[in-house]
Design a protein around this nucleic acid. Structure first.
Lengths: 117, 117
DNA sequence: TAGTTATTTAACTAATACGTTAAATGATGA
DNA sequence: TCATCATTTAACGTATTAGTTAAATAACTA
C-alpha cells in the first residue's frame, strides 16, 4: 500500500518486526518463519498479510510452499519520513532551543503536514 | 516509554504525524496545535497524551497553557531500527538477491529479534 | 484416489483505538 | 467571587486488531 499510516502500523507489532528481522537474513517459507514463535500459524499468516499489504514483504508461490522476502520500499519511505527530524537529535543541533526560538513565529499558517505524503 | 511498539504505533496516525511536523517548527500550545484540524479538542488532547507516552513530545505547564515540544529520543530510536535495513534499499545492495542467496542457510536458529531491543 | 503437508479462511472473543459530547479542572482577570 | 479561557477526563459508540480453534484449499506423495 506504501502509505505511512499502513507502514508504521505494521511496524508497531513486535512479531512483525521479528519477521522482518528474520527476512533480512534471506527469504524463507511461512512455516520456517513461524517456527520461532509461540503463536499459531493462522496468526502468523495474518501478520504476513499485514506486512504484504504494507509493502514490507513480497510473497510468491513455490509449489506447496509460499516464499516470503523483504520488500524495502516501505521501510525506505518510513526512514525518509524520519530523516526530516534527524536534525533534532543530531549533534549539530544539540542547542536546538536557540533554533526553535529563531524559527518560531516566522511561519504560522504553514501546511502542517506537507512532508507527510 | 521509548519502546518501538509504542513509537511506531504513535507514528501510525496521520494527525499525530502532522502534530510532530508542526512541532518541528517550534514549540506551541495545545490550542494552537489543534487549530488546523477538524477534530475536537479532546481528540487532540488524547493524541498528545499518546505522543507524550511514546516520548515523542514533552509537555510542560505554562500558566493557563500547556506548551508542547518535540522530544527526539523516540524518533531517533525508530530511525536507528530502520537503519538496520538501509542496505536493502541502498544502491550498493541493489543486487541483493546475490547477497540473500549467500547468507541463506548459514544461520538457522539465530536470535530472530536480536536488534529489536 | 487417498493421505499428508503447507497455508489460508472463517467464526469467534477480548482488548485497544479513535472519535464524539458533556462535565470537570485549573489559571486568569474583572 | 464570578465568569472565562485552556485543557483534560468521563462516558460512550463503533471499528480495528490480535489471538484462538476448526474447517477449507491446494500441492505433493504413495
Amino acid at each position: 500500500m506504501m502509505n505511512l499510516d499502513t507502514t508504521f502500523a505494521a511496524l508497531a507489532d513486535p512479531t512483525r518486526r521479528a519477521i522482518l528481522s528474520r527476512l533480512a537474513l534471506g527469504e524463507t517459507t511461512v512455516g520456517e518463519l513461524a517456527a520461532p514463535f509461540s503463536i499459531s500459524l493462522p496468526a502468523i499468516s495474518r501478520h504476513l498479510r499485514v506486512l504484504e499489504h504494507a509493502s514490507l514483504i513480497v510473497r510468491e508461490k513455490d509449489g506447496q510452499h509460499r516464499r516470503c522476502r523483504l520488500d524495502p520500499r516501505s521501510l525506505k519511505g518510513a526512514s525518509e519520513w524520519l530523516d526530516f527530524y534527524r536534525r533534532f537529535w543530531s549533534e549539530a543541533f544539540d542547542r536546538r532551543d536557540d533554533h526553535l526560538k529563531q524559527t518560531e513565529g516566522d511561519d504560522h499558517g504553514h501546511d502542517v503536514d506537507k512532508h507527510d505524503g
